[in-house]
């Protein structure tokens, strides 16, 4: 057990402590100046804003996918069920080049979209698309088991009390899934905020427009502006912590509703 703790501290704690120590070398003023520079602010805005938007899309589409996979029987269901995990298993760089090729102006989807006047690759829309791709499994895989385990009696009870299907879904099923849905949203958001590999190829990486925060960290590092890189990283790390704590609370909330059978 001592071994566990020391291993954990070596591999996780020391590096993170290093990051915070480094950020402490900055005066609050310096720290603030870095963060409030236009380019940093824009990068953070792009990362957080688009990640949240993508997570919301994933919440809606993920719920639809879960519903189809759990409640309906259709040809190819098992295959689609397995496919959901692809964004999780596919190396991010591969996803990045593939999405770019797909949505580039001459790509399979890019060409018809370009004909409609919609440009995806090398614009913020491309970042949005990549973040949707990367977030799908998080919503699906957190909500799926909860919907599967949802007691059928709950719906029968609602029906026998006179609720129609719509009322049952809105008043009974969705609230029962709420902790899982929010957990999925938080996980998809956290993943999209920090995502690098699948985004940078399709993003265009134009400063202030389509430059994500992780890329800005890499750029600052290559310019040897370690302080700048550290400051941005600290902000993102704090957000990660907040998301983890939120998820833990959501899990506890879900547990507290479990009946003690």
């Amino acid at each position: 057990m001592g071994l566990t703790l020391s291993w954990l501290s070596v591999i996780i704690l020391i590096p993170l402590a290093g990051l915070f120590l480094k950020s402490l070398e900055l005066s609050p003023e310096q720290f603030w100046n870095i963060l409030s520079s236009r380019r940093t602010l824009n990068a953070l805005r792009v990362s957080f804003g688009l990640a949240f938007a993508a997570a919301c899309v994933n919440l809606v589409m993920g719920s639809i996918i879960v519903w189809a996979l759990v409640r309906y029987r259709f040809p190819g269901r098992r295959l689609f069920d397995a496919i959901v995990d692809v964004p999780f298993a596919l190396p991010t760089a591969v996803a990045g080049v593939a999405l770019t090729a797909l949505f580039a102006e001459k790509g399979w989807l890019g060409a018809p979209l370009a004909a409609l006047g919609i440009k995806v690759a090398f614009t913020p829309v491309g970042i949005f698309v990549a973040m949707i791709f990367i977030g799908i499994p998080f919503v699906v895989r957190t909500v799926q088991p909860v919907l599967q385990d949802l007691d059928p009696e709950i719906e029968e009870a609602a029906g026998s009390l006179g609720a129609n299907r719509w009322q049952t879904i809105i008043r009974v099923i969705l609230p029962s899934l709420a902790p899982a849905l929010l957990t999925g949203l938080a996980l998809a958001f956290a993943r999209a905020v920090g995502e690098y590999g699948s985004v940078i190829f399709i993003a265009g990486n134009l400063p202030n427009v389509s430059e994500i925060a992780p890329l800005l960290i890499v750029i600052r590092l290559s310019e040897y502006r370690y302080a700048d890189a550290t400051a941005i990283a600290v902000v993102m790390l704090v957000v990660s912590f907040v998301v983890i704590l939120t998820v833990n609370r959501l899990q506890r909330w879900a547990q507290s509703r479990m009946p003690a059978r």
Binding site: E156, A157, V172
Partner: peptide
């Protein structure tokens, strides 16, 4: 028909009051 389920099938996210009121609200 009033049905009382074996494991009660109470709505976990609702208070006791809201559980009882459900049939009237829908």
């Amino acid at each position: 028909v009033g049905f009382v389920f074996q494991h009660y099938a109470l709505f976990r996210h609702m208070t006791v009051f809201e559980n009882v009121a459900f049939g009237l609200r829908v």
